[in-house]
Simulated assay, not measured.
Amino acid sequence: MAATAVLGATLLTGCGGGTDAYCDSLDDAQGKFSALNDADASALEDFKNAAEDLEGDAPDEVKDDWGVINSAYDDLEKSLDEAGLTFTDLEKISEGEMPEDLDEEALTKLGESMNDFGGDDLEKAGEDISKHAKDECDIDLDAS
């Protein structure tokens, strides 16, 4: 599951915080980031909720970085929706199981969107968050 790998890799090289409450939230959410590697649709939903909460709690130094990550996630979700698919469908596709009534054109468009997913901005946001997490929260997200 390409999107999961990008999100997981990005998050494992990037997350952060400055205040005690943010650091506590980040520490609590850390397991949700590593769960992304399992290509589990529920892990994607858990991640989405955690990332949105972290963006709201994040200190100014990383708030925009969380925004970049959440925006990328929203774009992925929008692409899936336009293709008539869900994260559960994406999980099944990654396992070689095609949903019934799959629109081949929509799937091709989704594939193009997923190829564009990530990029330098997302990678940099992840790196910035990771560095901040280590420096300010003493949390090593790379070890997740």
Results as ranks from 00 to 15, higher is better:
3 A>E: 12
4 T>L: 10
6 V>I: 15
6 V>N: 06
6 V>P: 07
7 L>D: 05
9 A>F: 09
9 A>L: 09
9 A>N: 14
10 T>F: 09
12 L>Y: 00
15 C>G: 13
16 G>L: 04
17 G>C: 05
17 G>K: 06
19 T>I: 01
19 T>A: 13
21 A>V: 13
23 C>P: 09
23 C>Y: 05
24 D>L: 05
24 D>W: 01
25 S>F: 04
25 S>W: 03
26 L>I: 04
28 D>G: 07
28 D>Q: 14
29 A>Y: 08
30 Q>G: 07
31 G>C: 02
33 F>M: 14
34 S>H: 08
34 S>I: 05
35 A>V: 01
35 A>N: 14
35 A>W: 01
37 N>P: 00
37 N>H: 04
39 A>G: 00
39 A>S: 11
39 A>D: 13
40 D>P: 03
41 A>Y: 11
43 A>S: 14
44 L>I: 15
44 L>R: 10
44 L>Q: 11
46 D>Q: 14
48 K>W: 01
49 N>P: 00
50 A>Q: 07
50 A>T: 06
52 E>N: 13
53 D>C: 00
53 D>F: 02
54 L>E: 12
55 E>H: 12
55 E>I: 03
55 E>Y: 03
59 P>F: 01
60 D>I: 03
60 D>N: 07
61 E>S: 13
62 V>A: 02
62 V>Q: 02
63 K>D: 04
63 K>L: 08
63 K>P: 05
64 D>C: 00
65 D>W: 03
66 W>K: 04
66 W>T: 04
66 W>A: 05
69 I>V: 15
71 S>M: 06
71 S>E: 15
71 S>V: 05
74 D>S: 15
74 D>H: 12
75 D>Q: 15
77 E>H: 13
79 S>Y: 01
80 L>E: 05
81 D>R: 12
82 E>G: 12
85 L>H: 09
87 F>L: 13
87 F>D: 04
88 T>P: 00
89 D>K: 06
89 D>V: 04
90 L>A: 14
91 E>I: 04
93 I>S: 03
95 E>V: 00
95 E>I: 01
96 G>H: 10
96 G>S: 06
97 E>M: 06
98 M>W: 03
98 M>T: 05
100 E>H: 04
100 E>V: 07
101 D>R: 06
102 L>S: 11
104 E>C: 00
106 A>E: 02
107 L>E: 09
107 L>Q: 10
109 K>N: 13
110 L>F: 10
112 E>V: 13
113 S>L: 07
113 S>C: 03
113 S>V: 06
114 M>K: 10
114 M>N: 07
115 N>E: 14
116 D>L: 10
116 D>I: 03
117 F>V: 08
118 G>D: 11
118 G>V: 08
118 G>S: 11
